[in-house]
């Protein structure tokens, strides 16, 4: 195995609130290797976005971050703002969900890409213009030199997201974090952006961390998947393994909740979608034991309510397939 580009180990993030600490990330670990795509999947409040913001030092002062994140040999956690700024962009590029709030509405596209370029190298104005045009062409924006003079509102949502990707690429990053990068886009535009990121990854050999709630997207692009619930990784594994033999009741619930577009049965002959009762827990009042146990359809053991299950290999599966449950499906203690 190669040395990981990014190795996150036992990451914890808590926010101070009036009701006490809100524990949003509770011991997250993962590794990202060059040229690979790691998908971090979860619903709102699972901690998936907060963990990436923590790596980049982009959380507000109320956040307390513990643990370790080694990027390219260097520790990121606890670094100064100035040091992290160098890492962001040159080392790690980020693309967020909503390009309209990430882009400055009163600056031209050229200024905004230029800012990113200047942050990493000394270049002349002409140099910037031609490099910016090159980047726009690379992300598939036609007529790049004319688009450089445009303002964000003059571009479509898909074009704006391409600009964000161009900015993220400006420093030739080794890691690209895509945080719900296609969530606000229409599916046909999403297909364009997925194709683009795959091509860029092939050409540049970047490692990609893809943070999303969309399991369909994950199935198409990920090598390795981390499923998060209440700030913990509840299951991880190679993409085929995780979708083919989901072991954690939460993962199984998520997959069952999805309608299947090409199910040949008409709507009236279909079964109801699988649902999980209730809601994810409040991070300021996490239940004891397994955080999923109040909603868990298996939950056959008093242990579930008292002891947090460790992330352990799923019996009979590939080594990298691990789940944090006493009742891994196919596991030894399935209770049957």
């Amino acid at each position: 195995m190669t040395t990981p580009l990014l190795a996150v180990d036992d990451l914890h993030v808590a926010f101070r609130t009036r009701r006490g600490p809100a524990r949003v990330v509770n011991g997250l670990s993962f590794e990202l290797h060059p040229g690979r795509t790691l998908a971090v999947v979860g619903e709102s409040g699972s901690g998936k976005s907060v963990s990436s913001l923590a790596l980049l030092g982009l959380l507000p002062g109320t956040a307390q971050v513990r643990g370790s994140a080694i990027f390219d040999g260097d520790e990121l956690i606890g670094r100064s703002e100035e040091e992290l700024r160098k890492v962001r962009g040159a080392g790690i590029g980020v693309v967020f969900q909503d390009p309209m709030t990430s882009l400055n509405p009163v600056l031209t596209i050229e200024r905004q890409i230029g800012e990113a370029l200047r942050a990493h190298e000394k270049v002349s104005d002409d140099g910037i213009r031609s490099r910016a045009a090159e980047l726009l062409t690379e992300v598939g924006i036609p007529d790049a030199s004319a688009r450089l003079r445009a303002f964000p509102h003059q571009l479509s949502g898909g074009m704006r997201q391409r600009v964000m990707i161009a900015i993220a690429l400006a420093g030739n990053p080794k890691v690209l974090i895509a945080d719900e990068a296609t969530t606000a886009l229409d599916v046909t535009v999403q297909a364009q952006i997925l194709e683009l990121i795959e091509r860029l990854q092939d050409e540049h050999g970047m490692g990609v961390v893809w943070i999303t709630h969309d399991l369909g997207v994950v199935a198409g692009i990920a090598d390795h998947v981390v499923v998060m619930y209440a700030g913990r990784c509840v299951e991880e594994g190679a993409v085929d393994e995780l979708f083919g033999r989901p072991a954690h009741p939460y993962t199984r619930g998520l997959l069952g909740a999805l309608p299947v577009v090409d199910d040949p049965r008409p709507a009236r002959e279909r079964d109801e979608l699988v649902t999980m009762p209730g809601l994810p827990p409040d991070p300021a009042a996490l239940p004891p034991g397994c955080a999923f146990h109040p909603r868990c359809p298996v939950r056959a053991d008093a242990r579930c309510a008292t002891e947090p299950p460790p992330l352990a290999p799923v019996p009979g599966s590939a080594a990298a397939h691990r789940a944090a449950t006493f009742y891994a499906v196919g596991g030894v203690s399935s209770g049957e």
């Binding site: 599916v187 046909t188 999403q190 297909a191 969309d214 369909g216 198409g220 083919g244 999805l258």
Partner: peptide
């Protein structure tokens, strides 16, 4: 064709028409 299907083998091999 653009709607992602949550099945890795199918999703990787499927013909996607990118407009």
């Amino acid at each position: 064709s653009a709607v992602p299907v949550p099945e890795p083998t199918r999703e990787r091999t499927r013909q996607r028409i990118v407009l």
